[in-house]
C-alpha cells in the first residue's frame, strides 16, 4: 500500500509541502487547501492521511474507494458534500474548504515529498 509517512522531528515547518500540494490540487497557493497540514507548536505536528480507509465505510454514497495501489480516492461526481469523512477521519486528515463542495485528501502523489527540504515526509510502499 502506498502512503505518505512522516518523521516529525525533522520538520522545520517551512510549509513547502502544503504549498506545493494546494498548487497541484487547486492551482493556488493556499495552505488551507492542502491535503496535509503542518501544525506549529512546541513540537511540530504533521497531519497526514494514512490511507486507513475508515472514510470508505463512512461515506453514504460510496464516493470513496481504494485503488489498486492502496490509495483511497474520492469520486467528486458522486460526492454529495456531507463532510462525514472529514468528521470521522481518525487522523483528522480529510480536509475541506468552503470554496468547494467536495472535501479533499492525500493521494500519496509524492509532490510534497519532493518539496520537503528535510525528508520529514516520505512515501512508504
Amino acid at each position: 500500500m502506498k502512503r505518505l509517512d512522516k518523521n516529525e522531528e525533522l520538520c522545520i515547518a517551512c510549509h513547502a509541502c502544503e504549498e506545493v500540494c494546494s498548487k497541484a490540487f487547486f492551482k493556488e497557493s493556499n495552505l488551507e487547501k492542502a491535503c496535509l497540514r503542518i501544525i506549529e507548536g512546541e513540537k511540530v505536528k504533521i497531519i497526514n492521511c494514512t490511507q486507513c480507509g475508515v472514510c470508505i465505510d463512512i461515506c453514504p454514497v460510496e464516493a470513496l474507494s481504494r485503488g489498486s495501489n492502496g490509495v483511497v480516492r474520492i469520486n467528486k461526481k458522486d460526492c454529495v458534500g456531507c463532510l462525514m469523512c472529514v468528521g470521522f477521519c481518525p487522523e483528522e486528515a480529510f480536509f475541506q474548504h468552503d470554496d468547494h463542495v467536495e472535501p479533499f485528501k492525500c493521494i500519496a502523489c509524492g509532490l510534497c515529498v519532493k518539496a520537503c527540504p528535510t525528508d520529514a515526509i516520505f512515501i512508504k510502499q
Binding site: 454529495v80 458534500g81 456531507c82 463532510l83 462525514m84 472529514v86 468528521g87 470521522f88 475541506q96 463542495v101
Partner: peptide
C-alpha cells in the same frame, strides 16, 4: 445531482463548520 449547496445558502461556511463539529 444532490450537493451540499443546492439550497444556494447565504453562507455555506457557517453550515460546514457546524456540520463538521457535530460529526466529530
Amino acid at each position: 445531482g444532490v450537493k451540499s449547496d443546492l439550497n444556494n445558502p447565504h453562507d455555506i461556511g457557517l453550515i460546514n463548520r457546524a456540520g463538521i463539529r457535530l460529526h466529530k
